[in-house]
Amino acid sequence: MITVAIANQKGGVGKTTTAINLATGLAAMGWKVLLIDLDPQGNASTGLGIGPQSRERSSYEVLIGSETVDASVQPTRVPRLDLLPATQDLSGAEVELVDLERRTHRLFDALEAAPPRWDICLIDCPPSLGLLTVNALIAARHLLVPLQCEFFALEGLSQLLQTVERIRTRFNPELSILGVALTMFDRRNRLSAQVAEDVRACLGPAVFDTVVPRNVRLSEAPSHGLPALIYDLRCSGSTAYVGLARELMARLPALKEAA
């Protein structure tokens, strides 16, 4: 199974929107997808129509070892897409994990013990570089970084990359940066174009060609418990995420065969 962490310690960059719609796009293209919600806010769970009252088991129980991944996942209304939901219990997980063995490898161990039911696993990380995100980066083979096209886009990116390098050196030498996805692009704003140009000049081919625009339908979809690709497939945001999913697949064909 290919495992991809979707992370950026800066909040409001489109991590959850990217996770939900990429997972939906990959499932629509025939991949069996597991989406892990590792954010205490649980927005990925809500955005897929799994309300708090329906989350009997969650990523919290998996991390502390009281439940397995296989027993905790829930099907979604999207065919071939399963979800490991999050609850507010995750808020205290970082404190609890400190006293547990292999506290940085809890998610890795849980996924290693899971049955081979899925082609790819996407992990929606919280907006921080704490133990939850570290667990995700150690469990993952690849990192996808959503980066919004705004003035502070590159602020903190170097810190994230330094963290990735430390994890690669100490824990997970196979971790690689799959790509950077530019989000919240505003065609009316010249600054968005300038930021996108600067990011491409800095990171080169690591940046995906597809740019996700600011789009009202992307913001509306979670309130209906639906990915934007189902809520409004024809909107510009959905079209962009379909393109991003295709780019993602193009970067992973050999890996899928080996998974």
Rank of each mutant, 00 (worst) to 15 (best):
E61F: 05
A110E: 07
Y231R: 12
A93F: 05
A71I: 01
V13S: 10
P253R: 15
P116V: 09
T18K: 07
E67V: 00
D209C: 00
I138V: 15
G42W: 13
S45L: 06
T210C: 11
N135S: 04
R187L: 01
T104L: 14
A245C: 01
T133G: 01
L38C: 06
L34K: 10
D209K: 08
R187Q: 12
A114E: 10
D109I: 11
P205Y: 00
G225V: 12
G225E: 11
A201G: 14
I36R: 02
A201H: 15
L191Q: 06
V95Q: 11
E96C: 02
L203C: 02
G65D: 11
R187S: 14
Y231P: 05
L226M: 15
G42P: 07
I20E: 11
E155R: 08
G156L: 03
V164R: 14
Q74N: 01
F171A: 13
F208D: 07
T87N: 10
V216S: 13
G130W: 05
T210Y: 11
W31G: 04
L48R: 12
H105D: 12
S238G: 08
H142Y: 15
T76D: 02
T183I: 07
A153D: 05
D186N: 15
G130H: 04
A28E: 14
P85R: 03
Q88W: 03
G12F: 08
N172A: 01
A254E: 13
D82K: 06
T16W: 13
L84A: 06
A140H: 12
V199T: 06
P173R: 05
N172F: 03
I2W: 13
A110Y: 05
L63G: 04
V95K: 09
S238I: 05
P253C: 00
M29T: 09
R168E: 06
E94W: 07
D232C: 13
A228Y: 08
L191V: 09
V73R: 04
Y231A: 05
I36E: 01
G47E: 08
Q159T: 15
C235Q: 09
R190T: 11
A7D: 06
P52N: 10
G51Q: 13
P173G: 01
D209T: 11
T46W: 12
A139H: 03
D82F: 14
S59V: 08
V145K: 05
R168S: 13
R217C: 09
E94A: 08
